[in-house]
Write a protein that binds this DNA or RNA. Structure first.
Lengths: 194, 194
DNA sequence: ACACAAAACTAACGTTTGTTAGTAAGGTTT
DNA sequence: AAACCTTACTAACAAACGTTAGTTTTGTGT
């Protein structure tokens, strides 16, 4: 369930995120956003300072959800395998609830202001480093197969990051089924052993 | 090893694909491309008919590599599991050899002409449908775990499609190690069974 | 009914966009 | 040396861009 829209600014960001998802940030004009809201472009500036603010608000909002989610996973101090399962579920939950911002986060982060790009890249690297440590720990304690950690990290993260492209297109796959199957694919693989 | 550049048109497309990868098609101007080549924007039009032609040439080139690769996989008539392994290797090979066009193919296909978008989407759907059939067949003959085929399809394909973002950033992972580990992650999973 | 703030409007600005026209420089063929 | 491509150039175009200024409409509280 999406959060109820309260302010006009949030409404603009919601409409814009939809358009960004379809065509990308650079291909969406302020006039496009305004038209989608039934107003004129100049009117947008009563609520926001500029186009870049729409983008960065949108991206940093979702980025913080990931950062907070990761912090909670680490705080619970479960086993590496359980942590990985929780991260998979975290991504699925965010995708289901905030899927609009994910396209911008994945594809348009480089169009924010320079200082914000730097902060974003740092956040993303920290996130990946946390994930990498969990995988390495799992290998060390013998829970995870001794594959190149980078390959495992990238396989899981790629899938989770592009989930938004896929969810809702394939008519309403149940969230819990998705969680179960996705965890199963990554943890157990797809092969049936004899 | 990238193919040696022969015509001036190919050179333009090579330079443009690099820029598209960094900022996206819409954020790259003809003047940007020209400057990267050390000439003026108007000079580009001696070799190409317009900006969209650069994009569609680039995208359709790579798309055909995938289509041809899939056809060869199907022709060899191996077992479903072997076919999946070959598809994974196909993507890795294309990523290593033609990584520049993959960003445009993934993110900017909607900026082609309408008729080309339609052709592209059809090609992509056919490709996915072929892959889906392989997975379903694998489940039927008992080679693959009875998970939702869509989840398996999407997991593998998401990873393969965004491989270009990772490869070469993570300093020169050996191609054969990558193939082996990636196949292993998807087929066998990451868990060590007792 | 009046005042005030929120949010819309029109009009315009300076840039940047993709692209075209016309032309000059260089190399190769005749 | 003349003719001819190829490929670059300058100059300019109309359209679209993000954004600002100033003004009018709309809704709410007094």
């Amino acid at each position: 369930m999406a959060m109820k829209i309260q302010t006009r600014k949030e409404e603009i960001i919601a409409v814009a995120s939809q358009l960004f998802k379809e065509k990308g940030y650079s291909a969406v004009s302020m006039r496009d956003i305004a038209q989608a809201m039934g107003i004129k472009a100049a009117s947008l500036y009563n609520h926001i300072t500029g186009k870049q603010e729409i983008l960065s608000t949108l991206i940093l909002e979702v980025a913080h959800e990931f950062t907070n989610g990761m912090r909670e996973v680490l705080e619970r101090q479960n086993s590496p395998l359980q942590k990985i399962q929780e991260i998979i579920e975290l991504h699925i939950d965010i995708t289901v609830n905030a899927s609009e911002g994910l396209a911008a986060l994945n594809n348009d982060w480089m169009h924010m202001e320079v200082s914000q790009v730097e902060a974003f890249v740092q956040m993303r690297e920290d996130y990946e480093e946390n994930f990498r440590k969990i995988i390495k720990e799992g290998i060390e304690v013998g829970e995870i197969q001794p594959r190149h950690p980078e390959v495992i990290l990238f396989s899981i993260l790629s899938t989770l990051r592009t989930l938004y492209l896929w969810y809702q297109k394939r008519g309403k796959l149940d969230v819990n089924v998705l969680k179960k199957d996705l965890v199963s694919v990554f943890l157990d693989g797809i092969v049936i052993k004899n």
